[in-house]
């Protein structure tokens, strides 16, 4: 595909971490999450094979209109998917609310001496 449009918005791009590479990693990870390109290729392969074997026409997929129920179950699935990816952020909040903030060395000390 020809990229005819600009990809960068004019204006300095803010970085939030002291090391901008961390922001870049965030962007890459979310890009990967969004793309799941391996998975999409795999789905495509399955579709191609199914069509070749006469089990499915790919046009049926394009013409498929999901019901409200299917739309909702997809939205739910995506929410679970996101909660898996963003787990590392949320466990910090959980730790804070449970006051689970003792240094690890104190646990080592506790078992060694206990």
């Amino acid at each position: 595909m020809d990229r005819v449009l600009k990809r960068k918005a004019k204006g300095e791009r803010p970085y939030f971490f002291e090391d901008p590479n961390v922001d870049k990693l965030v962007s890459m990870i979310m890009g990967l999450a969004g793309e799941t390109s391996v998975l999409m290729d795999r789905v495509d392969t399955i579709e191609q094979l199914l069509e070749k074997k006469g089990l499915l026409k790919i046009s049926e997929i394009e013409g498929y209109e999901p019901s409200t129920q299917v739309l909702e179950s997809r939205a739910n699935r995506r929410e679970i998917y996101l909660s898996e990816i963003l787990r590392i952020i949320e466990i910090e909040l959980e730790a804070e609310s449970l006051e689970d903030n003792a240094p690890y060395s104190s646990a080592v000390k506790e078992v060694e001496e206990g």
């Binding site: 918005a9 791009r13 803010p14 970085y15 939030f16 971490f17 961390v22 922001d23 965030v26 962007s27 979310m30 890009g31 969004g34 963003l86 952020i89």
Partner: peptide, 13 residues
């Protein structure tokens, strides 16, 4: 920092 990084990224995506 992480929140902002994620939010900015969502805008670009």
């Amino acid at each position: 920092q992480m929140f902002s990084s994620l939010l900015r990224t969502s805008q670009e995506m």
